[in-house]
Design a protein around this nucleic acid. Structure first.
Lengths: 342, 342
DNA sequence: TTGTACGCGTTATCAA
DNA sequence: TTGATAACGCGTACAA
């Protein structure tokens, strides 16, 4: 319960003015070595640390950056955060985590955080802010970068979801699949650069190239979690004709698909091919094919972009698009030799 | 780039003094309804938000709590954090994340954070602070709670690792195993209430009850990750006689054990039983037996304890011990019918 | 080179 | 019920 020493205490002990102490702390050049020593001695003696709150009162800088993220929702976000932490550990910045669990909380943060100036910069993960909020961030001059989301008003970092979905579906088509179930994520936010929408486009493109048409009953919108994936798969597997392959929008959903297949006694990959999206470690463990997103890299690049915006507040927003990588594993190993011609 | 309005601007617009504005903001009772309306109107007009930095300058409270955690190391920590977030979402507190990757960083945080007063309370996960640091937290009056770590100076929340290890080993003994390999975590910090040490004690106790003695070559100290678990398992499986069961200190290590077994063509559970520790979701997915820790609950209780310390700074430290739960799945399903009498 | 006074945006005290 | 004024701890012109 000791009281914290202030700059005044140090000045008194060292027998100098507070200005000098301040100069020593911020190693300002014009201070004689001898007095600097005295001050440093006093600082050491009192275990003095400058109060960061008082400091940021003047400097308008807090030394911390905020991250808004749906923390619980998907392991994907954890991986991105890992990248963020990684990039941040080299800088001297603190990380303030704003977890959002619902739309109300999200909009609350979107409208409050720009005003409260407790962070020097913001990273927003997988949450596309409406234009009104996005421009709000710009207006108050709070540097902000979007990851896995897009807004024309803010620098945005996305993966090429069209291409990713295309890769996945094409690989299935190449293996002879003609009825491919698609478990899409929830389409939310604006529809431009929406993950779910983009993946649907990629699906269409791959089907189109193969001369197939999209069958509406082969697509289900689903939450990103395992249980939802399982339910969605059960629905798809009840269709006639039954899909011989399922492409899920997340690895976790894909795991739900595997569970659904197991419960229906459908062999994977012999009777059903399964491919996920994300590239989580658990996909590797379960030998699950997937479309790999550069998750950690997204976090790292996001921080890098944010820093360049903090260094130059007038920088114009840009759109950075990263590529995905198809990772084929056991769950798509089986080749259908046109057992059922379509 | 709009400048932020201050309490003075509001006062001027509303034609009142700043004191009155302050009273309205903090809804102090003694302010006439009419003037309150005027002030509220001015606040709305200017989109005024009180500056939290200036606020905490006076109040000495920041509205945020800090968490020191080895973020990257283990999924276990993520789960605990989930519980923390969960408990925190109901309060109006922000979460500042301090990720530590090495001892230097850890000690840096331990010595700096108590001094810099940017948080109202601290949660430290899986990092036992040395006495000098622990008492430091107390002395500066920063409420601090330890999770999965122990210090006599701070309220500590631990699981009963002795009992957990005992449960695991006993279940293996009950199935006829007589040579049980043990992959321990790294023993660090003080040895009292050390996770790794406690689990070793539990192992000894179970062996003792079964009239067996501890075989030193059946234990390996290992990092908590998958690869280390694999390497450790390969070492154990090269011993003579070969262990018929392996108890790993984390589920992730246990997954490494499964990989080692596969690479050596050893069937699980027929030729080798495997049990982990933690109770991650991935253990369920891989049908891996494990000792379940109440991970989210640890986070939630940690926050609850922290809050009670913040409410009453003079509260004395306490030790809370939580129970583990044995979860038996496929990897320990096989029963050894004394194939090799010992 | 060094000390003093002022300001950052609030809350709290104290007259009025 | 109100308004002026003093803190809070620091950075920084400005004067010495």
């Amino acid at each position: 319960m000791t009281e914290h020493p202030t700059i005044h205490d140090v000045a008194r002990i060292a027998g100098v003015g507070i200005g000098t102490v301040s100069r020593v702390i911020n190693d300002h050049p014009s201070v004689r070595p001898a007095t600097r020593e005295k001050v440093l001695a006093a600082i050491a003696q009192l275990h003095f640390k400058p109060n960061p709150i008082a400091r940021s009162m003047i400097s308008k800088r807090t030394g911390s950056i905020g991250v808004i993220v749906p923390f619980f929702t998907r392991p994907f976000h954890i991986e991105v955060l890992r990248g963020v932490q990684n990039a941040l550990s080299h800088e001297q910045k603190e990380l303030v985590l704003y977890n959002v669990e619902n739309d109300i909380q999200r909009d609350h943060y979107f409208s409050e955080i720009p005003m409260h100036r407790k962070v020097d910069g913001m990273l927003i993960i997988s949450l596309p802010p409406e234009d009104i909020f996005a421009s709000g961030f710009r207006e108050v001059g709070l540097p902000t970068v979007l990851i896995d989301a897009y807004s024309p008003h803010l620098t945005s970092l996305v993966v090429n979801n069209v291409e990713g979905a295309y890769q996945a579906v094409k690989s299935l088509l190449d293996k002879g699949h003609r009825h491919i179930g698609f478990i899409n994520g929830i389409i939310e936010g604006n529809f431009k650069f929406n993950q779910a929408n983009d993946r649907l486009i990629g699906l269409h493109r791959a089907l189109g190239e193969a001369g197939l048409t999209f069958e509406p009953n082969m697509m289900v919108e689903s939450e990103w979690d395992r249980h939802a994936g399982c339910v969605a798969a059960l629905h798809l597997l009840a269709q006639v004709p039954r899909p011989t392959a399922i492409f899920a929008s997340s690895d976790v959903q894909a795991i739900g698909v595997l569970e659904a297949a197991k419960s229906l006694d459908i062999a994977v990959p012999a009777e059903l091919a399964v491919i996920g999206f994300d590239g989580l470690e658990v996909a590797e463990l379960l030998d699950l094919s997937t479309v790999q997103q550069p998750m950690q890299q997204m976090g790292e690049i996001g921080i890098a972009k944010l820093f360049s915006h903090m260094a130059d507040p007038h920088r114009t927003p840009e759109l950075v698009s990263l590529a995905t990588t198809l990772v084929e594993r056991n769950t798509t190993r089986h080749v259908y030799k046109d057992e059922k011609k379509v």
